[in-house]
Amino acid sequence: MADVAFSICVYLGSRPGNNPLFTEAATAVGHWIGRHGGQLVYGGGRSGLMGTVAEATRVAGGRVVGIIPQALVDKELANHFCDELHIVQTMHERKAMMAERSDAFVALPGGIGTLEELFEVWTWRQLGYHDKPIGLLDTDGYYGGMLGFLQHAVHGGLMGEWQMGLIRVGTEPDALLTALVQDAGANASAIPLRSVI
Rank of each mutant, 00 (worst) to 15 (best):
L72G: 06
V4F: 14
A99E: 08
V181F: 04
V106K: 10
A99P: 08
Q163W: 12
M97D: 07
A28W: 11
I87D: 11
N187W: 12
R168K: 03
M1H: 10
G61W: 01
G135F: 06
R63T: 05
P173E: 08
F149I: 05
S47M: 15
H36S: 04
I87S: 06
F81V: 05
I87Q: 11
M159R: 04
A153W: 00
E76D: 15
A25Q: 07
T27I: 06
V154K: 02
D138I: 01
I8F: 06
H92S: 11
S102Y: 00
D3L: 11
V106D: 10
T171F: 03
G135N: 04
I68C: 09
R15I: 02
T123M: 14
R168N: 05
G111N: 14
G61E: 00
K75W: 15
M164N: 15
T90F: 10
G145Y: 00
G61F: 05
F22H: 15
L21Q: 10
Q163I: 03
G128K: 11
E172S: 13
R168S: 07
G45K: 10
G51I: 07
V154D: 07
G43N: 09
D103K: 10
Q126C: 15
L12E: 08
H86V: 00
Q151F: 07
V65I: 12
A26W: 14
E172V: 14
L166G: 11
I67K: 10
S189A: 09
I134D: 04
G185H: 08
L147E: 08
G111P: 12
W124K: 07
F149G: 08
G165P: 01
Q163A: 11
V73M: 09
V121G: 00
L136G: 09
L193I: 03
E55Y: 04
R46F: 13
A54L: 07
A28D: 06
V169W: 00
F105H: 09
F22L: 10
R194H: 12
D140E: 05
A104P: 00
P192S: 06
E93Q: 14
D131W: 15
L118E: 01
L158V: 13
G66K: 06
A2G: 13
A99Q: 09
G30T: 01
T57N: 08
Q151T: 02
A104Y: 03
G111Q: 10
L115H: 13
G34M: 06
L118M: 00
A188Q: 00
Y11W: 13
E117H: 11
H80M: 02
F119S: 02
W32G: 08
E84S: 07
L176G: 01
M97H: 12
R101S: 07
G43K: 13
D138L: 01
Y129L: 15
Q39F: 08
G38A: 03
V73Y: 09
T123I: 04
M159Q: 05
L136I: 11
A56W: 02
K75D: 13
G66H: 04
P16L: 15
E76Q: 12
W122D: 01
L127D: 03
Y11E: 10
